[in-house]
Design a protein around this nucleic acid. Structure first.
Lengths: 129, 129
DNA sequence: AAATAATACCTAAGAATTTTATGCATAAGA
DNA sequence: TCTTATGCATAAAATTCTTAGGTATTATTT
């Protein structure tokens, strides 16, 4: 029973953290796909750490968003899973399927187009008109 | 009764349109605020047209998203409304309040930070590591 | 030794924001 | 006269997150 109490009392450090910028909804899947495109295979926790590292702690992927997203990408056939046991702990490695690689290209160009459009809207070149 | 039937039968041209890139959730408010920052006052329909024009038809703001967003921004005290009648049709002109102008600055820098973070994640500088 | 932090997975309820699908009304154009 | 454009609006459904848990092992402090 001690353990149970400890779990409950244990302060969750989930988002006590730093000034993280918000994640605009819809971009998480693309982030996941892009990371996997560059690194062959990764597991969930690794993804959260990689994003934190690359953005210097500015962007945090919550696990509550990540794991359902991974499951969905797998269900859609874009990712394959492979279990591994490291130090008695289970890891689930994800990698792109063939169709996942194709889809990654699409999602990336979609996101890049969106960013271009946002920059068009935010850059006030047109306001001198 | 003829009219009623006509309304029902009338094909809505809402999104029959072109290859529009998706709107990532969370960015609409910032778009609205930014447009109003540059142009003093605008009405809803005008905003949809301006976004379409600036992005060359690539980004479409749906009315179902826009009007509730405008109402919410008004309720939050970021926008003021002013009615006008043009050609027997009503227009609702929105403009930034003082607090709206301040908030616009915050939202813009948030979005810019997000874009910087996304570019960091999408640019594969780190993959040669 | 005991407490805490880090690593590693998971889910469910709720919030926020959008799409889709309507409804209504006038003016302009084909 | 039919259709498109202009102009407002709302409601149901879908999507995608955040928040808040739960479980378990290993590493690090105290």
């Amino acid at each position: 029973m001690h353990k149970k109490i400890m779990y409950i009392l244990a302060l969750r450090n989930q988002s006590i953290a730093m000034g993280n910028s918000k994640l605009y909804k819809g971009s998480l899947n693309t982030i996941i796909l892009k990371l996997l495109e560059g690194t062959d295979k990764m597991y969930g926790y690794e993804i959260t750490q990689k994003v934190k590292e690359l953005t210097k702690g500015e962007l945090t992927i919550t696990e509550g968003a990540l794991y359902p997203a991974l499951h969905k990408l797998e269900a859609e056939g874009l990712l394959d899973v492979e279990m591994a046991k490291v130090d008695n702990r289970v890891r689930k490695y994800y990698k792109l399927t063939e169709s996942g690689e194709k889809e990654t290209v699409n999602r990336l160009s979609e996101l890049e187009e969106y960013i271009r459009n946002m920059e068009t809207l935010l850059n006030p070149k047109w306001s001198i008109e």
